[in-house]
Amino acid sequence: MSAATETAFGAALRDPGRGAPAHLAPSSGRRPERRFSVYRNNVAVSLMGALATRFPAARRIVGEAFFDELARAYVAQHPPRSPLMMMYGDDFPEFVAQAPGLDEVSYLADITRLEAARTRAYHAADADPLPASAFAALDGALDEVRLALHPSVEVVRSGHPLVTIWAMNSGEAELGPIADWSPQDALVCRPELDVFVRRLPDGGAAFLVALAGGATLADAAGRAAQEARSFDLTENLIGLIGGGLVVAIRPSQQGDAP
């Protein structure tokens, strides 16, 4: 088709203020608006549906009607640039953070960051977690050891009780009052085939972020302790190794961070 025909069709699709494009055949009916609206509906509903599928907890928190208007505005301003719907909405959290009218649910952007990370983890590359025995064999310059984390690992930091709010709105926990409104950092990972969301202990986020950035075990532990005095290295190593978050050990002589 001519690029002009396509442009006119596409423009009419996305702007309900315009009528159907002018170059339709008579068999489309004398008033083709409703017929053309099928396409307009398909585009809007499928893209809004992709967001509803990806951000179910956020949708539950603000309600379907509100979420759908938020999604409608996002779709209009940020149409997908890729045909991979699984990745549509990667920058929805930034949009939510800027959206008006959400002051009362200031944690909503963090919830969408967590949900976006869950989809990425679901589709992340597979890698076999190292068993504990791989660490038992480590000796020598432990402080210089660097760890490669599982490709699914993401840390979502929050000033709100993120994991609790998410759990209550994703069927993982009963809805109820949250008495302790302390900040919670979340770990998202998929060591095998199930995606997990875990609340990180104090300093855990700094520890993981440092490791993911290529810091040595000693440096990562140091940075975590600097951020949180209560950082407990043993507890974090249990989570790291027992949780299957490590897929490779890079001994000291293998040079700098990736």
């Binding site: 949708r59 539950r60 928190i61 603000v62 309600g63 509100f66 649910v105 809805l175």
Partner: peptide, 8 residues
């Protein structure tokens, strides 16, 4: 104007 009526 859609009124959020979610679980919050």
């Amino acid at each position: 104007k859609a009124v959020a009526k979610g679980t919050c």
